[in-house]
Design a protein around this nucleic acid. Structure first.
Lengths: 209, 209
DNA sequence: ACCAATTTCAAACAACTGTTTTAAATGTAT
DNA sequence: ATACATTTAAAACAGTTGTTTGAAATTGGT
């Protein structure tokens, strides 16, 4: 019990701090202090900080990726030739919402971690993404191409990442953007408002040309 | 001569390293080694690392922001009530290309630095952005609203930042994304191809609903 | 209750961080 | 050439980083 508990206490604390400050700006001492655990525990249970980062990401990927792939495959099989972009986007909702089982902010945290993984990447994270990302990416490309056959595979690839960029940038810059938004209009913006703004924007982008 | 030269050698080296590794992951010793200058020179000429970061950003902002604002105002005055989204996007081209006067990669570097400024923000950078960014943001909002009066000011605000997110994410993740793209299709993607993909996507997003 | 394996802990590790100090070198006027 | 201010340079600063050590505490199996 104590072994699992310590490991998970570290993962929980690390995840929050990684999302808030980034991987490199989070020290092991910040993590172990928040987790109420000895500094040496990280190296004992995970080996190194690098492996801790991957363990944090793994927890989300092993939960999210299979669910998303199942959801997409089910929708593709169900709709067959009538599969639309709306079906594509809808396939994300359930898997994303299911992350809330971990904790309330899990969905946002996941997106932020993915974003940080992309931009803070220093080699080992890049390799991690390309391996754990490969078959999912193929399925995503195939799905969109089913809904929009007139697009090239390359165009779909880039548009998917443009969309990811909008989401990830909005998440990681959340505090800064909300502050600026608050200074310009005096009405504050909730996460729900943001999603409401985001969805039609992403849909229109993928539908371009 | 020697004083200006040292200052600029530091700025040039810092800019490249900041864009490549981020602000916090770039040490003063990395910068001064690349610049072939003593470590103490940074604190002598700039006061602190924070002030060096702002000096690097300043070099771009003082060059880019006035040009963009003039370009937008000229276009607004010229087209009057016939100002379109195409006019809006076109106003960026000249100011962005003029950055190439600094060096060949200046435009991409500028976008990356802006992106890092948003997500690595720890307080002082956020304040820097809101002050040096305020009147430009207002002008951008007004311009888009002239072209698309049916949108609310808040919607335009978020869509502008969604677009910035796509650009910035694509820039900062450039290497990683190109690697993935190369693994999936075997045709490599140039920056020109990327812009060609980006423009219709951004236009469609702003035109949504 | 015992032994052995697992886990925790305080302390120290070498390497690195931004910054400061002090002295030497350089430049610039008179 | 003298006197002054500006700029460079080597060295050390206190603080933090990830990681390792070795002994203490805890655990689980018999």
């Amino acid at each position: 019990m104590s072994q699992v508990s310590t490991k998970q206490k570290i993962l929980n604390a690390a995840e929050i701090l990684f999302a808030k400050h980034g991987f490199d700006n989070t020290s092991l001492r910040m993590i172990t202090t928040d987790a109420d655990v000895n500094v040496a525990a990280v190296n004992y249970h995970f080996g190194s900080k690098k492996e801790l980062i991957q363990a944090v990401l793994d927890r989300y990927f092993t939960l999210f990726v299979p669910k998303l792939m199942l959801s997409l495959k089910a929708s593709l099989a169900d709709k067959e030739d009538a599969f639309t972009l709306t079906d594509f986007y809808s396939a994300f909702i359930q898997p994303l919402l299911s992350l809330s089982g971990i904790h309330s902010k899990a969905t946002a945290t996941f997106m932020i971690l993915v974003g940080r993984g992309y931009s803070e990447t220093q080699g080992h994270l890049r390799r991690y993404f390309t391996t754990h990302y490969g078959e999912l990416l193929s399925l995503l490309l195939d799905s969109v191409l089913k809904a929009k056959p007139e697009l090239t595979r390359a165009t779909v690839f880039w548009r998917l990442h443009f969309a990811l960029g909008s989401v990830v940038f909005t998440m990681t810059s959340n505090t800064a953007l909300r502050e600026i938004a608050l200074a310009d209009f005096d009405k504050s913006t909730s996460i729900e408002d943001l999603i409401y703004e985001l969805v039609p924007y992403l849909a229109a982008g993928m539908n371009a040309e």
